[in-house]
Design a protein around this nucleic acid. Structure first.
Lengths: 376, 376
DNA sequence: ATGAAAGCGCTAACAC
DNA sequence: GTGTTAGCGCTTTCAT
């Protein structure tokens, strides 16, 4: 007979088995295993040993039913395919795991109807709390509000018009970081390219820009274009800007995709970025680092948002207040907004990584091209 | 964090409540609600009405404990932040949901150790099946193998060297699609830029290229560079190619990031893509549509992979055979591989969407900007 | 067809 | 400190 942790295919090992095996009671076993109550050191040792030997694996499900908590948090995002949200999901999962919680992720697919279903599904599964970045500011309101009447809920990044805690990145600071940076770079005549999306961030970033430019002597406040959060929209806008506002020397975009489009559009029109016009984006998604030039972008504090969200969720059981947590973003300066001083001789291949934004990227020094020899 | 059990007024409505309310037994209520056994039409009606009236919500958790199934499938991906995997996760979730299953998503963060923890966490939560795209061909093997001894498991996209069902996109076809297309475009002298990653796809795509080029008269089989799955690596390689193999007129890349880097590198070296050299990528991620030129890429059949994975998972309870399912990819032709015939007059802004993809993509004929990717 | 009762595996009183 | 026991909410024999 095999006695090893790798015993397989046999019937499930339960606390009762461990109890029988040790001659102790299920209660003691449970206590020893979970440490919920003090037990003799000796008992603890015996139980642990037996558990190990029998290959006992606690059943999370039964535990959850018993204690009434699942140690699972639901996260609903508008579209997991959008880089920003996959980054957010990643951040949330990391934070949850540190607390021993699991993440049940659902994708609303930008559809408020489906979003509602996601939430209901999650509720049926007895999650302990819900984090949601609502698809639609108005249409998601009811879903969010109703969920909040049944369990702790927080809105993260985006929010709907519901009386439910919001965890966001300060939109004023988001835009201000770009503005200040661009001014430092000597820019003075701005334009803003945003979106008319139902996402709350579309509106808040626009308002932030208007407010910051309220008394700009060059009339930047009026130079605003809103459409979609897409590269295409940005591309279109560059044409409009060149034609309508030829003096503009800096464009602030509400997200990275727009920024990318704007840059490509300018390039197509033979305008150099950043020499002729500087461009910045928001969210600091992958795009900003891999395009050329690389794109200066305002990063949301993802880990911070996730932490704040969890904290709010946990606090919610006691204290019923709805709060607003607004965190500070970070500016990642890259090539699209900084004019190079030193003109490099065009002998060698330009170093693509210039202005790739500080943050710890391992160097690619060797540049060695090895011939293949894959492993199998 | 506590579930709604906090307020007394809102206590959870259970089958017992419905039973009491209707004067029937819990058994009848359960049967009427789940339809597991026949009940009188009258009883059914009464129960449904009462359930509705009391606001009964079935408790998934209790049900799971009772029936022994959770209707939840775990998905472990190497890195949710990588566009390909977020697309895969999306596809999996959609397919699962059609079957009334939920997806518990975990992110291995490219770390085999953490991957192991993910799997264990998932097992403890009693998922019904596990889909995994292993981080490492060798290091993930044990994790996958052991999991498979405890529950149905399938490997999707990537695979480790374990005797566990694999659901993949045919690598030979993947590369062949690019090769054939490029030849049709009049290209004859190829190079391949791949990766030395521990991911199985790195190896399989390389082998596919070598096999397809085995008797290429121009010696394409020997022109292979392998490094990382990154833009930087692609960028480096373009320099190597220009210098070492100046005759190359087509470069096949093992993924889109590499392709992007290769293209940018060529541009920096004043080589025109696609005129001087054509480039293709793999996986058809967002990048391929938003760069310029847009990049031709081989798309994996995501929905198909997800469906096959689920099917294999479900079949696994009965039949114990380990199988290999290999699905066919699709080529998405874009600007990086097709030389424009008509030279457009440079009066107006170039239409960015030209060659934005043929096969089965909604047409963007109008030149009207679309292609959504809502943000934040 | 329906009801009573026995669990699913675990924890939390409540005794000793 | 430890054991006994009663559930968590649901499904499912087993009788009727």
């Amino acid at each position: 007979m095999h006695v090893g942790s790798t015993s397989v295919a046999n019937r499930k090992v339960t606390v009762r088995d461990v109890a029988r095996h040790t001659g102790l009671s299920v209660a003691s076993v449970s206590r020893a295993l979970s440490g919920s109550r003090p037990v003799t050191a000796e008992v603890a040792e015996i139980v642990l040993a037996a558990a190990e030997e029998l290959g006992y694996q606690p059943d999370h499900l039964a535990r959850a039913l018993s204690v009434g908590r699942t140690s699972t948090v639901g996260l609903v995002v508008p579209d997991i395919t959008t880089p920003f949200f996959s980054m957010l999901a990643d951040a949330v999962e990391r934070v949850l795991r540190k607390e021993g919680l699991a993440m049940l992720l659902m994708n609303a697919q930008n559809d408020p109807e489906w979003e509602r279903e996601c939430v209901e599904l999650l509720l049926a599964r007895r999650i302990d709390g819900l984090m949601i970045s609502p698809t639609h500011q108005a249409k998601s309101a009811r879903t969010v509000q109703e969920a909040a009447s049944r369990l702790p809920v927080v809105q993260i990044d985006r929010y709907a018009t519901a009386k439910v805690t919001r965890i966001i990145t300060d939109p004023l600071q988001t835009i201000a970081l770009s503005v200040d940076h661009l001014r430092e770079q000597g820019r003075s005549t701005f334009a803003f390219v945003g979106a008319e999306s139902s996402a709350s961030t579309a509106a808040t970033r626009l308002r932030a820009y208007e407010r910051l430019m309220a008394d700009d002597p060059n009339g930047s406040a009026a130079r605003v274009l809103t459409g979609r959060f897409t590269t295409d929209w940005g591309y279109e806008c560059s044409g409009v800007i060149v034609e309508r506002w030829p003096d503009v020397d800096a464009v602030i975009c509400a997200n990275d995709l727009i920024a990318l489009g704007v840059i490509q559009g300018f390039q197509a029109l033979r305008r150099d970025v950043p020499t002729d016009v500087a461009v910045t984006g928001c969210d600091d998604t992958l795009f900003s680092a891999i395009s050329r030039p690389t794109v200066t972008s305002v990063a949301q504090p993802l880990a911070g948002l996730a932490e704040a969200a969890l904290e709010a969720l946990q606090g919610q059981s006691q204290d019923e207040t709805t709060k607003l947590v607004s965190l500070a973003p970070t500016l990642h300066i890259r090539g699209s907004s900084v004019t190079q001083r030193r003109r490099r001789t065009r002998t060698s291949m330009p170093d693509k990584r210039s202005f790739n934004g500080a943050a710890g990227h391992r160097s690619l020094a060797s540049g060695k091209a090895r011939a293949s020899a894959p492993d199998e």
